[in-house]
């Protein structure tokens, strides 16, 4: 998937130009990361055809969806896109089941069963979406986007309302789903931990400009002047042969080997001093 998009937008500092060009290899999860108002959602909306760029070109799986130079704009209701909106966009007059059925009238029963299990929505099928909590609504929105079997899945802050357990189950499922279905996955987040852990390709946006892009270990490489006396927050722990913790420190992520004395004690959310930890750049999960 290739795209190049340019558009004048209002940023916090005033009028500015969003300018992003990138190529995304198949099977790669891309993260658009940056502070609020940096243009991330606008990029998703332009890819989906909900917002017209001043200039732009979008190519996916060999088809041109948009080319402003040739006046090509493929109708958005023919693009087969799964989109999870920040406000979830669940249809308030429908139940959870009706929302899913509306998205995919000839839905695959096996996929539906899988989705209901992973999102724990089976008991809520008959509930009105307006009666659900934020986390439940977010799960319905994700399930509704996936059941469409889209060729492009655009997720705008999709995990903000999920508890850690659901987050840890749903994220690998979505990534596996996209790999097996051949679906391109782009996730917008302002959360650095998510940006590092969810994707293989991170685009750091600020006021519409691409500051850095590449694998998380490059985009979030720690500065050279890091002091061992600094402390950071544990955002992820792996429990394999060599247990490691990913630490968020200012605008960098570090991966540390968990020392013997902290094994079994260190938890996500803990603040730790970096003294005497062996530090290495993070690897994407």
């Amino acid at each position: 998937m290739d795209f190049a998009l340019r558009k004048s937008l209002h940023f916090a500092s005033g009028e500015g130009k969003l300018d992003i060009t990138t190529q995304i290899p198949d099977g790669i999860t891309t993260i658009l990361w940056g502070p609020s108002g940096s243009g991330k959602t606008s990029v998703l909306r332009m890819l989906a055809g909900l917002l017209a760029p001043d200039q732009g070109k979008v190519m996916i799986n060999g088809s041109i969806w948009l080319d402003t130079s040739q006046n090509i704009s493929y109708p958005l209701n023919k693009r087969n896109i799964g989109f999870v909106f920040q406000d979830y966009a669940l249809f308030p007059s429908m139940t959870v089941e009706e929302n899913l059925k509306f998205a995919a009238p000839d839905k695959d029963p096996n996929l539906l069963q899988d989705l209901l299990e992973i999102t724990e929505l089976t008991a809520l099928l008959g509930a009105r979406t307006t009666s659900l909590s934020g986390g439940q609504q977010q799960r319905v929105a994700v399930a509704r986007a996936l059941i469409q079997r889209p060729q492009l899945l655009l997720l705008d802050e999709p995990f903000a309302a999920l508890d850690q357990g659901m987050h840890d189950r749903l994220v690998p499922y979505i990534k596996q789903y996209c790999r097996t279905q051949g679906c391109h996955l782009i996730i917008v987040t302002h959360d650095m931990a998510d940006a590092c852990l969810l994707g293989e390709h991170v685009i750091h946006l600020q006021e519409g400009r691409v500051i850095k892009k590449g694998p998380p270990r490059e985009v979030f490489a720690a500065g050279q002047n890091l002091h061992n006396s600094a402390s950071g927050k544990v955002i992820h722990i792996t429990h394999d042969n060599q247990p490691t913790a990913t630490i968020l420190l200012d605008s960098s992520l570090l991966e540390i080997s968990v020392p013997q004395q902290l094994l079994g004690k260190l938890q996500v959310g803990d603040l730790v001093a970096l003294d005497s930890f062996s530090i290495r750049p993070p690897t994407p999960t």
Binding site: L50, L76, N77, R79, F83, D87, F102, Q148
Partner: peptide, 13 residues
């Protein structure tokens, strides 16, 4: 919310 209409169109409706 404009997203209701947009979500439906993106579902191919």
């Amino acid at each position: 919310p404009s997203s209701l209409r947009e979500a439906s169109l993106l579902m191919g409706k």
